[in-house]
Simulated scan of single mutants.
Amino acid sequence: INSILSLMVALYILGSKERLLLQGKRLIMAYLKPSHAQTLLDIIRLMNESFTNFFVGMTLEGIILGSLVTVAASIFNLPYAGMLGVIAGVMALIPIIGGYISAAVGTLMLLAVSPSQALFYLVMVIIIMQLEGNLIYPRVVGGSIGLPGLWVLVAFTVGGGLMGISGMILGIPLAATLYKLLGRDVLMREKRQTLTILE
């Protein structure tokens, strides 16, 4: 029931998002000082940009992982190579457990054909997921949201430790927003110090 209600609320929000955005902006402008309102709207805009870029990066990362699994399965003549790649790519959108789900589903599919091929696939997909998780994911997702790879891994780990799967999903875009806000603040302080020195 909660899932159905959540879906319905999400659809209503998507259907009237322009009106909700306008109402939210009017509320902020009406109840806050102009300088505070502008700062809050700027932070909201930055968060929106970070979250959008994060989900675009996650989708790109899923495509890359799916392609790697498809190519590797084709090279080693495993059956259902295309389907195994699609499953891996779609499940990559689910942090942490998505890879395990895709590995389990693919292994079960191949187990019906050949136990040795199923075992080989399991080892192959674990190696690909390790490479992808430690090398490709931080660069692709971090590059899309403007967050260095090291901080992507830190945000992912800390967010997961604090809030589980939702923390993994929200941790990276929130860290990217904080990273950009901190960068802006540092630049403003450096400019002030430079102006003070010149005076």
Score class of each variant (00 low, 15 high):
Ala118Lys: 05
Val71Arg: 03
Met129Thr: 05
Gln117Ile: 08
Tyr121Met: 09
Ala88Gln: 10
Ile128Glu: 01
Val90Cys: 04
Leu111Trp: 15
Val123Lys: 07
Tyr137Gly: 04
Leu93Trp: 08
Ile97Cys: 02
Met91Pro: 01
Leu84Asp: 02
Ile136Trp: 01
Ile101Thr: 15
Ala88Pro: 04
Gly82Asn: 09
Ile127Gly: 11
Ser67Pro: 12
Leu108Ala: 13
Ser116Asn: 04
Leu131Gly: 15
Gly133Ala: 11
Leu65Trp: 06
Ala92Asn: 11
Ile75Gly: 08
Gly99Lys: 00
Gln130Thr: 05
Phe120Leu: 13
Ala88Val: 08
Leu122Ile: 04
Leu78Asp: 01
Ile64Asn: 05
Tyr121Asp: 02
Ala88Asn: 08
Gly142Leu: 10
Asn77Glu: 11
Gly98Ile: 02
Ser114Trp: 07
Gly89Met: 07
Ile94Cys: 01
Ile75Tyr: 14
Ile94Ala: 07
Val86Tyr: 02
Met91His: 01
Tyr121Gln: 05
Leu131Tyr: 13
Leu68Asn: 04
Val125Gly: 02
Met129Glu: 09
Pro138Gly: 01
Val105Lys: 06
Gly66Asp: 11
Val125Thr: 07
Val123Tyr: 14
Val140Glu: 02
Leu78Asn: 02
Met129Trp: 05
Ser67Met: 06
Val90Ala: 10
Thr107Phe: 14
Phe120Trp: 11
Asn134Ser: 12
Met83Gly: 10
Gln117Thr: 15
Tyr100Asp: 06
Ile87Ala: 07
Gln117Lys: 11
Val90Asp: 06
Ala103Cys: 07
Leu78Arg: 00
Ile136Lys: 00
